[in-house]
Design a binder for these strands. Sequence first.
DNA 1: CTCCCCCGTTGAAGCGCTTTAAGACGAGCG
DNA 2: CGCTCGTCTTAAAGCGCTTCAACGGGGGAG
Lengths: 344, 344
Amino acid sequence: MRPTSSDAGRGRAGMSDVAQLAGVSIGTVSNVLNHPARVSGTTLERVQRAMTMLNYTPNVLARSLAAGNSPILGLVLTDLANSLFIDIARGAELGAEAASMALMMSNSDGRLDREASYIATFAQSRVAGVLLTLNDEQHYGELVGRTPPDTPIVVLNYAAPTTHFCSVSVDNEHGGYLATRHLLDIGRRRIAFVGGPEALRPVRDRERGFVRAMREAGVTPALELMPDGVNRADGYAAGVRLAELVSRAEVDAVFAATDLLAAGIAQAAESRGVTIPADLAIVGYDNNHAAWDSPIPISTVAQPGEEMGRRGVEMATAETRGGPHEHGATVLTPTLVVRRSTTG
Amino acid sequence: MRPTSSDAGRGRAGMSDVAQLAGVSIGTVSNVLNHPARVSGTTLERVQRAMTMLNYTPNVLARSLAAGNSPILGLVLTDLANSLFIDIARGAELGAEAASMALMMSNSDGRLDREASYIATFAQSRVAGVLLTLNDEQHYGELVGRTPPDTPIVVLNYAAPTTHFCSVSVDNEHGGYLATRHLLDIGRRRIAFVGGPEALRPVRDRERGFVRAMREAGVTPALELMPDGVNRADGYAAGVRLAELVSRAEVDAVFAATDLLAAGIAQAAESRGVTIPADLAIVGYDNNHAAWDSPIPISTVAQPGEEMGRRGVEMATAETRGGPHEHGATVLTPTLVVRRSTTG
DNA sequence: CTCCCCCGTTGAAGCGCTTTAAGACGAGCG
DNA sequence: CGCTCGTCTTAAAGCGCTTCAACGGGGGAG
């Protein structure tokens, strides 16, 4: 074994090196780092000088081990290609920065096994908490069982029953209501809804909002389409059908459950001579890049992804610190973004 | 202080608990984990049973501290919104999985200070290595100085001089050449190039490929545009100019240095009655979602982002393990993806 | 001038694990 | 029957840091 410090062997100065150079004890060096107030001005300065001289970098591993806590948060993202999750990541990053925590992101691609494996990895690293984005109840159910009991988990984008975890989600029903209300407000009455597979809970919720708004206005939905997917291609197919109905004056607006869907619809409709928004007003959902990058910018319902990430971090750190903890479900409110697809 | 294991205090079993339950020493438990061959069959089984009974989760922190190595790799991404970096992240994740390492991703948004701060954070966590995506030489230069000497760094997406780091990059010159060659091959001769700010090295390289291909073919470029940015809006502006030239039969094809640029050009051109690809053939660069999601799918040059990530991980782990290490610069080859914007 | 208290500082114990030198034990050999 | 050898197992020494009981020394109060 080497004499004192093994990191030193790798060219790295350790706390003991700093202590020696500054002529103080190792405990004092630690105090400089963690409780500067306890150290006298002179000593503090001397130690700090020694640190910079040696280019001292504290070892977080040792620190966490000794202190019994970790400065790292884990984040499991469902789908890196979806801009909502990118927003969540950004927000989480900001929140982590504010709480001076590091964020360890990873991407499950929606696969349950990877979700579980990342959670396990995080648990082994004794992270302070894990933020988990989720889409459907199947995954939620699976995860409830397998989860290590001592790691605080915050579920994002899914309104978890508060029994097991904290959660932060967005009110999809309200979003659907907003979108539909907007179409009604600009005078449309023959409104169609294009949704997606029944399994997707967010889509179902958006539809509920649609239905509520229509009922409130005493208007009957012109059509409800439920494609197998929620991507551009599915939208295109739906758009072809809609274009026909538009030409027969049976439809004058559509609320699509995702922006990709909306973009596909817009493309199909335009290629068939339908004018947007004159003949057909369109509202999408997600505030995806696809929406504002579309030839005709599409009105949409924006999810507060960043805030979701930020709040998630807050809840996780709160749970870590606080003694007795109530799991709480925060529900955020989406906002309507009006673009050319619904305004002259 | 608590008697033996403090993790136990938090409800977690430690190695000593396992040892006690299995009736062996703590060292034997460690051997079960790290050198199963040294342990007799009977003991091994008994210990393993004890582990599952106690739901034992090894503490990676303590493990790394004692063993002096880390199972974590850091990855600093320049821009989460750019699909190239998402691909890199995916590849790195796969590579890490294969090397049974954990990956800690983070997003610098192209800001130098955040890059530096993440590198510092990673260094404090004594990660095994850091993968750093980079765009321009300014950042590269800055970083060379500030970098902790003992953490292996692999630069991605930028051909670093091999003096300081390993790097994995893509041959942008060749990509530009491929794109231009393709336009020439389909019979176009009045070819324009739309680039971007001089500072962006990748864009400059793509232009060099363009120039080489044109020279080889003995064709004079119809026009070279250098907008201030490389986004859709910049493309739209360029497209307006191009449309006019097309109508005067001065341009029949364009190579845009990014897909967003290309998408903007396509949109502007179409809105001005230019038919794609008949009047104007377009090739973009990046294989961005924007490209295949465009109303007219745009031909593009695809960067092997996943492979870049994977190779980066390999180089990092190699550098970590291997004793004497040569920094090497790997250069990958991009490929042409032909879509409707260049075929009838 | 003494006593006490507080401020700064120290030394040692310990975080959960790996590693290694040394020990225990049975088998095989002369 | 004693000895060597090899196989398993153990005890103890760290890894770099935090924490805390204890300590020393000044200054204010008496």
